[in-house]
Design a binder for these strands. Structure first.
Lengths: 206, 206
DNA sequence: TAGATTGTTAATCGATTAACAATC
DNA sequence: TAGATTGTTAATCGATTAACAATC
């Protein structure tokens, strides 16, 4: 039965389950089980059943889960039945790669605005969008009601950009700048930190 | 005092501490405390002291930590006193951005070889390196003794590429392909999954 | 029905926090 | 010395796992 307080760590695994179900569905499969999902994802079946139990009962004893149904439910739970417009701030190499990435839409996101403060970059076109002056960030984000942003600016600019985004109404930020930024309560932030991932693995190497 | 079994979650935080110390040092600061570090990083001072205590005693009561000393110790613990040569597999937009990123060296990594299987890309030059045919991956990785790799290929190719890398002697893999790949015991793998990070935040949005 | 797998409970395991003696 | 902060212990908190009754 659904409970009030779902642990963040559980919510963080739902997109992983969703993706595995999508792949299975694309392969023409109709039914799966917690055991099969666990093997596919390298985790225990008990954990998958426990995680799902926070949100409802989606399977049938003896049968497992209907893939399309469970997938629909996870998309509903995660609010992925709509497409979220996203602002991208920072048009360096990384920003360029993100702006060109055409896999966002299938995952419920679409970069609708790109910002940079470098005059050489402002006005450049990427994937049908013109890079805009960061000075217009607040106005554009507010007018379009954008709630989600990706930050791909240098460390020195990250906190200021995040402050501007929050001020303009953004509620969820994906931050690629390798620094901790402060956000008010109620604003979500996630970090992408490949260097930290590489470095932690070196602990185990000679 | 150092213990034998350091939790993975603790090891994962060391690069975060290291980076904060680097920034403090660059700003000319000489001493810090667990409290200041905690405020900088949005975590408790107790956790920082507890984490560090797995590896030794690095501070002085009443004084705190000497930044350059603690930084050196963390670099030693994480095996970051050397530069690790890295193989990059996949030269799409993301691979291009990674190959051009010039921040790796300061963090103890250097991309020394880039691979792709697309004839149009093979031979292109990037940051002083030629993109090589993936068919040469095993040979090059083995000959150069490369132990670290970054995988930025499509989902359909990821498991095969990882298998090749492991076979060629790679021990640590940073995987950008949005799929779980299996590796033998003793091989480290970390995932970079921006979509999953975005999606999990949408749970909290309307 | 017989077999299989869920949803859930209770036990186990592990991580974080609070508190403080030690000590610089 | 007096004040400050570490390193560590014990308590608390939270997550994972194992087991199984329920049931498709």
């Amino acid at each position: 039965m659904p409970s009030k307080e779902v642990p963040e760590i559980v919510i963080g695994r739902l997109p992983i389950y969703l993706r595995a179900l999508t792949y299975m569905g694309q392969a023409g499969q109709r039914i799966t089980s917690s055991q099969e999902l666990g093997e596919t994802l390298g985790m225990s079946s008990a954990q998958i059943r426990k995680d799902l139990s926070h949100f409802g009962e989606f399977g049938k004893q003896g049968m497992g889960y209907e893939i399309s149904y469970l997938r629909d439910q996870l998309r509903r739970i995660l609010h992925l039945e709509r497409t979220w417009p996203v602002a991208l701030v920072g048009y360096g190499d990384l920003g360029h790669a993100l702006a060109n990435y055409n896999g966002f839409v299938a995952e419920s996101f679409e970069i609708v605005a790109v910002f940079d403060n470098n005059p050489d970059k402002i006005g450049q076109e990427v994937a049908g969008k013109k890079v805009q002056d960061s000075a217009k960030l607040s106005k554009v984000v507010r007018e379009r009601g954008i709630k989600v942003a990706i930050v791909a600016v240098p460390v020195a600019a990250a906190q200021k950009v995040v402050d501007m985004l929050v001020e303009a109404g953004v509620k969820a930020i994906l931050n690629y700048a390798p620094i901790h930024v402060s956000v008010p309560a109620g604003i979500r932030i996630q970090y992408i930190d490949p260097i930290a991932h590489l470095q932690r693995m070196m602990f185990h190497l000679e």
